Amino acid sequence: MNGEPRLGVDFGRVIHGGLLAPGDDDTVFLGGSFEEALASPATAGVYEVLPGLIEAFGGRAWIISKCGDRVRKRTLAWLDQHDFYGRTGLPRQNVRFCRKRPEKALHCEELGITHMIDDRLDVHRAIRDVVPYRYLFGTAEGPEWVRHIPDWASAEIILEDIPVGRSRPATRRSR
Protein backbone atom coordinates (compact mmCIF):
# COMPACT_ATOMS: atom_id res chain seq x y z
CA MET A 1 0.00 0.00 0.00
CA ASN A 2 1.30 3.43 -0.88
CA GLY A 3 -0.25 5.35 1.98
CA GLU A 4 -3.13 6.79 -0.03
CA PRO A 5 -6.39 7.05 1.92
CA ARG A 6 -8.78 4.13 1.44
CA LEU A 7 -12.47 3.94 2.33
CA GLY A 8 -14.36 0.93 3.64
CA VAL A 9 -18.17 0.89 3.82
CA ASP A 10 -20.48 -1.69 5.35
CA PHE A 11 -23.49 -2.80 3.30
CA GLY A 12 -26.30 -3.76 5.70
CA ARG A 13 -27.84 -0.83 7.59
CA VAL A 14 -25.36 1.57 5.95
CA ILE A 15 -25.71 1.34 2.15
CA HIS A 16 -28.94 -0.64 2.38
CA GLY A 17 -31.62 -0.64 5.07
CA GLY A 18 -29.98 2.11 7.11
CA LEU A 19 -31.43 4.24 9.85
CA LEU A 20 -33.22 1.37 11.55
CA ALA A 21 -33.37 1.44 15.32
CA PRO A 22 -30.39 -0.24 17.02
CA GLY A 23 -30.93 -3.99 17.09
CA ASP A 24 -33.54 -4.00 14.31
CA ASP A 25 -32.96 -6.16 11.26
CA ASP A 26 -33.93 -5.42 7.70
CA THR A 27 -36.40 -8.30 7.54
CA VAL A 28 -37.34 -7.77 3.89
CA PHE A 29 -33.74 -8.13 2.73
CA LEU A 30 -32.84 -10.91 5.15
CA GLY A 31 -36.08 -12.88 5.39
CA GLY A 32 -38.25 -11.81 2.46
CA SER A 33 -38.26 -13.33 -0.98
CA PHE A 34 -35.37 -12.80 -3.37
CA GLU A 35 -37.56 -10.43 -5.41
CA GLU A 36 -38.51 -8.43 -2.31
CA ALA A 37 -34.84 -8.16 -1.34
CA LEU A 38 -33.91 -6.85 -4.79
CA ALA A 39 -36.76 -4.33 -4.72
CA SER A 40 -35.85 -2.97 -1.27
CA PRO A 41 -34.41 0.56 -1.24
CA ALA A 42 -30.99 1.96 -0.51
CA THR A 43 -30.43 4.00 2.62
CA ALA A 44 -31.66 7.57 2.14
CA GLY A 45 -28.93 9.87 0.87
CA VAL A 46 -26.40 7.19 -0.11
CA TYR A 47 -26.49 8.09 -3.82
CA GLU A 48 -26.16 11.80 -3.05
CA VAL A 49 -23.09 11.49 -0.78
CA LEU A 50 -21.20 8.23 -1.45
CA PRO A 51 -20.20 9.05 -5.06
CA GLY A 52 -18.41 12.20 -3.85
CA LEU A 53 -16.63 10.25 -1.12
CA ILE A 54 -15.52 7.57 -3.58
CA GLU A 55 -14.25 10.29 -5.91
CA ALA A 56 -12.43 12.00 -3.03
CA PHE A 57 -10.72 8.68 -2.23
CA GLY A 58 -9.63 8.35 -5.86
CA GLY A 59 -11.81 5.26 -6.32
CA ARG A 60 -10.00 3.46 -3.49
CA ALA A 61 -13.20 2.33 -1.77
CA TRP A 62 -14.55 -1.09 -0.83
CA ILE A 63 -17.74 -2.58 0.53
CA ILE A 64 -16.79 -4.86 3.42
CA SER A 65 -19.77 -6.88 4.60
CA LYS A 66 -20.43 -9.74 7.03
CA CYS A 67 -22.87 -12.36 5.76
CA GLY A 68 -23.37 -15.96 4.70
CA ASP A 69 -23.72 -17.29 1.17
CA ARG A 70 -27.45 -16.60 0.82
CA VAL A 71 -27.17 -12.92 1.83
CA ARG A 72 -23.94 -12.53 -0.18
CA LYS A 73 -25.85 -13.59 -3.33
CA ARG A 74 -28.67 -11.17 -2.48
CA THR A 75 -26.19 -8.36 -1.85
CA LEU A 76 -24.38 -8.82 -5.15
CA ALA A 77 -27.69 -9.09 -7.03
CA TRP A 78 -29.01 -5.97 -5.25
CA LEU A 79 -25.88 -4.00 -6.18
CA ASP A 80 -26.39 -4.96 -9.84
CA GLN A 81 -30.17 -4.41 -9.78
CA HIS A 82 -29.73 -0.88 -8.43
CA ASP A 83 -26.81 0.02 -10.77
CA PHE A 84 -24.83 0.71 -7.61
CA TYR A 85 -21.44 0.62 -9.34
CA GLY A 86 -22.52 3.01 -12.09
CA ARG A 87 -24.30 5.37 -9.68
CA THR A 88 -21.46 5.57 -7.14
CA GLY A 89 -18.24 4.90 -9.04
CA LEU A 90 -17.30 1.99 -6.75
CA PRO A 91 -15.25 -0.52 -8.77
CA ARG A 92 -17.24 -3.75 -9.18
CA GLN A 93 -14.32 -5.85 -7.92
CA ASN A 94 -14.16 -3.87 -4.65
CA VAL A 95 -16.67 -5.91 -2.67
CA ARG A 96 -15.49 -8.15 0.16
CA PHE A 97 -17.38 -10.54 2.43
CA CYS A 98 -16.58 -12.31 5.67
CA ARG A 99 -18.52 -14.65 7.97
CA LYS A 100 -17.89 -12.88 11.29
CA ARG A 101 -17.78 -9.17 12.07
CA PRO A 102 -14.31 -9.22 13.67
CA GLU A 103 -12.96 -10.62 10.37
CA LYS A 104 -13.57 -7.20 8.84
CA ALA A 105 -10.32 -6.18 10.54
CA LEU A 106 -8.44 -8.68 8.34
CA HIS A 107 -9.90 -7.15 5.18
CA CYS A 108 -9.17 -3.63 6.42
CA GLU A 109 -5.57 -4.55 7.16
CA GLU A 110 -5.05 -6.31 3.83
CA LEU A 111 -6.61 -3.43 1.86
CA GLY A 112 -4.96 -0.67 3.90
CA ILE A 113 -8.34 0.85 4.81
CA THR A 114 -7.83 4.21 6.53
CA HIS A 115 -11.50 5.24 6.92
CA MET A 116 -14.36 2.83 7.73
CA ILE A 117 -18.12 3.43 7.93
CA ASP A 118 -20.01 0.73 9.84
CA ASP A 119 -23.12 0.66 12.01
CA ARG A 120 -21.82 -1.92 14.50
CA LEU A 121 -19.73 -0.95 17.51
CA ASP A 122 -18.28 -4.48 17.72
CA VAL A 123 -16.81 -3.99 14.23
CA HIS A 124 -15.26 -0.70 15.32
CA ARG A 125 -13.74 -2.43 18.34
CA ALA A 126 -12.23 -5.07 16.04
CA ILE A 127 -10.74 -2.50 13.63
CA ARG A 128 -9.67 0.02 16.27
CA ASP A 129 -5.96 -0.81 16.00
CA VAL A 130 -6.09 -1.17 12.19
CA VAL A 131 -8.20 1.74 10.87
CA PRO A 132 -7.36 5.25 12.10
CA TYR A 133 -10.65 6.93 11.09
CA ARG A 134 -13.78 5.07 12.25
CA TYR A 135 -17.36 6.25 11.67
CA LEU A 136 -20.33 4.75 13.51
CA PHE A 137 -23.30 5.09 11.17
CA GLY A 138 -26.90 5.35 12.36
CA THR A 139 -28.92 6.32 15.38
CA ALA A 140 -26.68 4.99 18.15
CA GLU A 141 -23.75 7.05 19.40
CA GLY A 142 -20.53 5.41 20.53
CA PRO A 143 -17.45 6.11 22.61
CA GLU A 144 -15.09 9.01 21.91
CA TRP A 145 -12.73 6.89 19.75
CA VAL A 146 -15.35 6.52 17.01
CA ARG A 147 -16.99 9.42 15.18
CA HIS A 148 -20.79 9.31 14.99
CA ILE A 149 -22.48 9.79 11.61
CA PRO A 150 -26.25 9.70 12.07
CA ASP A 151 -27.07 9.63 8.33
CA TRP A 152 -25.54 10.03 4.87
CA ALA A 153 -26.02 13.80 4.86
CA SER A 154 -23.65 13.93 7.85
CA ALA A 155 -21.09 11.66 6.17
CA GLU A 156 -19.53 14.51 4.22
CA ILE A 157 -17.50 15.25 7.37
CA ILE A 158 -15.31 12.34 6.26
CA LEU A 159 -13.85 14.70 3.64
CA GLU A 160 -12.30 16.66 6.52
CA ASP A 161 -10.38 13.56 7.59
CA ILE A 162 -8.66 12.95 4.25
CA PRO A 163 -5.10 14.28 4.54
CA VAL A 164 -4.50 17.45 2.53
CA GLY A 165 -2.56 16.76 -0.65
CA ARG A 166 -4.09 13.32 -1.08
CA SER A 167 -7.09 12.47 -3.24
CA ARG A 168 -9.38 15.05 -1.70
CA PRO A 169 -10.51 17.69 -4.19
CA ALA A 170 -9.53 21.29 -3.42
CA THR A 171 -13.19 22.29 -3.12
CA ARG A 172 -16.26 20.25 -2.42
CA ARG A 173 -18.71 20.23 -5.24
CA SER A 174 -22.43 20.01 -4.88
CA ARG A 175 -24.26 17.04 -6.30
Rank of each mutant, 00 (worst) to 15 (best):
D83S: 03
A155V: 06
A153F: 15
K73H: 10
I157H: 14
V164A: 14
Q93K: 07
H107T: 11
W78T: 03
G68D: 04
T114L: 10
V95F: 05
L106F: 13
A77I: 01
P102S: 05
H107R: 09
V49P: 03
A44F: 11
G18W: 05
T114W: 05
E160F: 15
G59P: 14
A153M: 15
D24H: 12
P51G: 07
A39K: 01
G12Y: 11
A77L: 02
D119K: 00
K104C: 08
L20G: 13
G18L: 05
R96T: 06
A153P: 15
V28Q: 02
T75W: 04
Q81Y: 06
I149T: 04
P41L: 03
I157G: 12
R60K: 13
V146R: 00
A39S: 03
S33F: 05
G45A: 03
W152E: 08
E55S: 09
S65T: 15
D122V: 15
L30F: 13
V95Q: 09
V46Q: 07
R60N: 04
L30R: 11
D10P: 07
V164E: 15
F57T: 06
S40G: 10
F34D: 09
I54K: 05
V164Q: 14
G3D: 04
G165Y: 08
L53G: 10
R175C: 10
R173G: 14
M1K: 01
A42R: 11
I54H: 05
V131G: 12
I54D: 12
R60A: 11
I113L: 04
G165E: 04
D161M: 06
G165I: 03
V49W: 08
Y85F: 12
E110N: 04
P102R: 07
R134F: 12
R166G: 02
D129Y: 12
H82T: 02
G68S: 08
I54T: 11
G31Y: 03
I64Y: 08
G3H: 05
I64D: 10
H115Q: 02
S154Y: 05
D25W: 04
R96M: 08
R147I: 07
V95A: 04
R147N: 02
P143V: 03
A56I: 13
E36D: 12
G31W: 07
R175Y: 03
G58T: 07
V130H: 05
H148R: 02
E160Y: 15
P132C: 12
W62F: 15
P143W: 02
K73W: 04
L20E: 06
R74Q: 04
R120S: 15
I64R: 04
E48W: 06
F11Q: 11
E4K: 10
E4W: 05
A37E: 00
S174C: 15
T27R: 06
Y135F: 14
V131L: 10
E48T: 06
V131S: 08
V123I: 03
